[in-house]
Amino acid sequence: MASQGTKRSYEQMETDGERQNATEIRASVGKMIDGIGRFYIQMCTELKLSDYEGRLIQNSLTIERMVLSAFDERRNKYLEEHPSAGKDPKKTGGPIYKRVDRKWMRELVLYDKEEIRRIWRQANNGDDATAGLTHMMIWHSNLNDTTYQRTRALVRTGMDPRMCSLMQGSTLPRRSGAAGAAVKGVGTMVMELIRMIKRGINDRNFWRGENGRKTRSAYERMCNILKGKFQTAAQRAMMDQVRESRNPGNAEIEDLIFLARSALILRGSVAHKSCLPACVYGPAVASGYDFEKEGYSLVGIDPFKLLQNSQVYSLIRPNENPAHKSQLVWMACNSAAFEDLRVLSFIRGTKVSPRGKLSTRGVQIASNENMDAMESSTLELRSRYWAIRTRSGGNTNQQRASAGQISVQPAFSVQRNLPFDKPTIMAAFTGNTEGRTSDMRAEIIRMMEGAKPEEMSFQGRGVFELSDERAANPIVPSFDMSNEGSYFFGDNAEEYDN
């Protein structure tokens, strides 16, 4: 993207840094990872977990959730003011799984939030270390993106479920800051804005008074975040219109849905970061690795190297396929839920299948599930090659597409044709070009129609051997075009429920 120079890199967003050079960025990201790792080690000690239990991804998720809940100030305040039966607002906890007599047992633990905050700050040299908290939120978000298709949420806001490739980060909490905003897809931002506008339509006082002023500035800020994701002048001009509207209503909703559809071809720039579970960072720190000293990046080879040398386990339900569970977590670790499966298959070195073909449910185990038949197995999170994460949407291309997802959002900077089903997408653009945004709409449609099938995206960008740390010898991959490109292809993934 041309304006790259004016933006802070995501590592800076990730670490609240002012302008830093590459070495400083690597050190501050490393410091953040160190903090998460030290916190995780301490929690495993508190909970008396064995090494194996500490490497269980379900335990990692519970521990991450506990610290996120302990620092969720708004919710904590709300819980104190609106006490609900049987919930102690000062405590947080969740299921911890232990191996007892050759069987997995679930144990519900409860801790004072104050105590968890103390352990977290102690692991982070006394700081609140917001960057580390956001990092864990993005890992949870990436896992949700890989596990669930947001059909219901899309339909509720009037969008087409086939636009799911635009929904990265749709389950990120509001408090995820600049680093969170960077990884949100165009569809996620559109959905947040539509929800806001709908509230304004239904509630006369939404934009009024002292609160209304705050609401208005939040609305304009979200519009600017979305505008910054678009790469064409016409899309940005249309966002200006939406932002400046005196009284946002149905016309703005129409414009936003139009823009979301246009992003299936004229893709937005959305950041991709490899955020790993805390149970990967903990053992690495415990083994003596100093992330701050060595430096770390979320968008280069580092996460690949770390996963190459990590042992992570997962509980497996009786009829689940461990290899499929591994694929789910591998995609989440690489922030690749909406990437082209052919690119992923090449990088991973084994075939990556669409969601609907995987015999696996989510990673988390519900409290009512029976533990008797639970097994555990090693997650295979290694890769054959590594590639640089991208934040450009890439230019655009036609490809055989599917009944489910009709476009992709690249996660890796790797040369390819970008699949999208042009006739299906263009069919949504018939007729409606009147109104105050008509010239911009016409211009956007013209650009979409001009998108050429034979153009290559990320020209000359390749993948790298894991021994090639400096990215000196790019390998331009070859793809098996007979395979499906979309992950949520004609899909039956479970729906995400809060």
Rank of each mutant, 00 (worst) to 15 (best):
T45D: 04
E252P: 02
D439Q: 11
Q12K: 15
K90F: 00
L264D: 02
M239E: 06
G460K: 13
G187K: 09
A260M: 12
F479T: 09
E220M: 12
M447R: 12
I365H: 07
E380Q: 15
G300F: 09
A260R: 02
E292K: 07
M456V: 12
A218V: 13
Y289V: 07
Y97A: 08
K422T: 12
D101W: 01
I316S: 09
G180F: 13
Q231K: 15
L307R: 03
A428V: 06
E434P: 12
Q399Y: 03
Q149K: 09
V363Q: 05
N334M: 09
A286F: 04
M163Y: 04
D127I: 10
K7N: 12
G490C: 04
S176H: 08
D34Q: 12
N370R: 10
R342T: 06
R195H: 05
I388Q: 07
E210W: 07
E11Y: 05
L315K: 12
F304H: 07
F420A: 14
P410I: 00
P161Q: 08
A337C: 14
M448K: 12
Q364G: 05
Q58H: 14
V285K: 05
E210F: 11
A233F: 03
I388P: 06
A181H: 12
L49G: 04
T15N: 10
V299R: 07
F420E: 00
M447C: 10
D302A: 13
Q235C: 15
K452D: 00
M163W: 12
M374R: 03
G93I: 04
E53K: 00
A153M: 02
A182H: 13
G177I: 09
E455S: 12
E494M: 08
Q58M: 01
W120G: 08
N483G: 02
F458M: 02
R384N: 14
E494Y: 04
E484D: 07
V155F: 06
N21W: 03
R236A: 06
V312R: 00
A181N: 04
L49K: 01
G180W: 10
P419T: 04
K305V: 05
G393C: 09
M137P: 09
A260H: 08
R470W: 06
S3G: 00
A129N: 08
I225C: 10
I197S: 12
L256E: 08
R221V: 04
R216G: 07
E454W: 06
D72S: 05
L276T: 04
L68Y: 07
L298R: 12
E80F: 12
G462W: 01
N395E: 06
